[in-house]
Design a binder for these strands. Sequence first.
DNA 1: CTGTTAGCGCATTCAC
DNA 2: GTGAATGCGCTAACAG
Lengths: 345, 345
Amino acid sequence: MAATIIDVARHAGVSIATVSRVMNGTTAVRPDTRQRVAEAIEALGYRPNQLARSLPGGQSDRVIGLVIPEINNPVFPEIAQAVEHEARHQGYQVMLCQTDDRWAIELKYAKLLIDRRVSGIIFVSGSFSHVKGDMEPYRLVREANIPYVLVNSRASDSTMAPVLATDEVAAGKMQAAYLLQHGHRHIGFLGGGLGYYVTRDRLLGVNQAMASLARGETASLTQQLGGFQQNRATLLARTLLTQNPRPTGILCASDLLAMIFMTQARHMGLRIPDDLSVIGFDGIQMVQHTWPPLTTIAQPLRKMGTLAVKSVLGQPINPRLELTLIKGQSVGAVPSNAILKDVAT
Amino acid sequence: MAATIIDVARHAGVSIATVSRVMNGTTAVRPDTRQRVAEAIEALGYRPNQLARSLPGGQSDRVIGLVIPEINNPVFPEIAQAVEHEARHQGYQVMLCQTDDRWAIELKYAKLLIDRRVSGIIFVSGSFSHVKGDMEPYRLVREANIPYVLVNSRASDSTMAPVLATDEVAAGKMQAAYLLQHGHRHIGFLGGGLGYYVTRDRLLGVNQAMASLARGETASLTQQLGGFQQNRATLLARTLLTQNPRPTGILCASDLLAMIFMTQARHMGLRIPDDLSVIGFDGIQMVQHTWPPLTTIAQPLRKMGTLAVKSVLGQPINPRLELTLIKGQSVGAVPSNAILKDVAT
DNA sequence: CTGTTAGCGCATTCAC
DNA sequence: GTGAATGCGCTAACAG
């Protein structure tokens, strides 16, 4: 159907080698010849077949695989956007792989990307972020000699790959410290299960912050762990809200969780930050538009996407990722009647 | 580096054809032979090169190109998610192309996708959605004989391609009607420029709704058109809010615009829906988490993604897309002091 | 059932 | 400068 290099050669009365030359500018070609070829290309609307082009060169499809749990959680689009930008600037395309947070699909995608001989793979919050995660995908990719990088969450020791992640312990510490500073002593934690490294690290940080209170001071921690999915999160939020006594300062593992939580709190007639303080994590752009504006610890999401691309392309990077406190209006002082107020179900 | 089919053949003591056969199950192979080959494959960790595999068959890379303006506007991830799901179920992968809403990049991506011989291309809110949009990308794709579909917004007559879009006129009508029902007679419109078909159609619908008021009744319309980008939108929102008299019912071209608008309104000390009513468009999931929950007209975003995939794969679809009113709490009655109240800048 | 032989579209040595 | 020849990894006839 489409014109091939042979058609062009014939049309221009030259050999295919010459056509190839004018296309890639490998060797010098006499101006008039080059002209004739150019015209032939134009006339036939010829476009070189990238697939065929990749074959001789060994591999290198100039494609980067981006593997993420779900496109719908706003934190991933922000990373994806940066990945696409950087990839585009470097002349690469992005293969979008969504795993629905299921390891089997992640493995399947890893295989597909290997088979396609992509230039690199970026795994975001994959099974590696789970304590008992399946390391098979990464093993395969490594054996296939394809550069990859693990974004978000800690990598287990068995994966020898660059990791791009913020200090989750520090993150938990910052979140808790901020709540403690505002006088909260009954902290609630809403997050994923203990199977996730993030959860463990975050809790570690929280405990560190609580331990560093002045002597005599104590604080309690109520956890609701389960998952990041909307349904689960809604349930967890309700449960946390019906605790008695109810925590006054809530620390959420992600901004989306925080948003879900705030919505639930509202459903139950609680006001933020008057009755309840909330702090999130991620720093997605959407936090500007919540009410009240969410106070959160921001990761450099865009930077993470950019660095991930550079990393798999073998370019030197500084993997230092800073956390930033974004002050919204979702954290306030402890309500004076905190202990008395009951919850309406 | 990686093992090829030849290595496997040698290792198993058979011909490459036989290896190919056991891989694809094309022809029957004697069990013990198949076994030997399987072992060889396993032993060498062989994975067939998809690129090479595509060549003989003509094309068909089993890849679908998804071209969207930006990943960050929440409406696109929702479509993208559905596209990935459907593509995966059908054994296809998705190439993510972000244009930053720039025609030049859209064109560039169209070329890249053609060169890569993708199976189909899904253009979402592309340059075709603009009255003076550049039709070159679609022309090229058509000439390359690659199936494509235009999602969102109306296609100009010059593009002969399936279009997947809701009835924008009806949408505008629904939005306006809802506000009118609540007694609003001073309507504000916040949206993209007149260069977009959506804007034109939406305004057409708004006018239709306003025209169908009972005799003697009239309503006014104040427009702020400009763009969908965050910065622009913020400016437009402020301008709209400082009109005198200020419209009491605001109709936004997208949910994101509505969210931006509500945030601005809040900054100016206005309460929704007490002082101001707002209705959005798109029906993104995030509307559940705004405050107040946004009232909006929902498009079947997921369905659009699913149908888009089926469409480019040549499967029969019913392109009927229904609009649904999602009742939030952002629309209320006209404030009694609407005319008196001034705006603080 | 299985091995042999052509290409697929292109880049790349080589000679001329 | 340019053309002919070779091979990339694999599938698909075509023979045995």
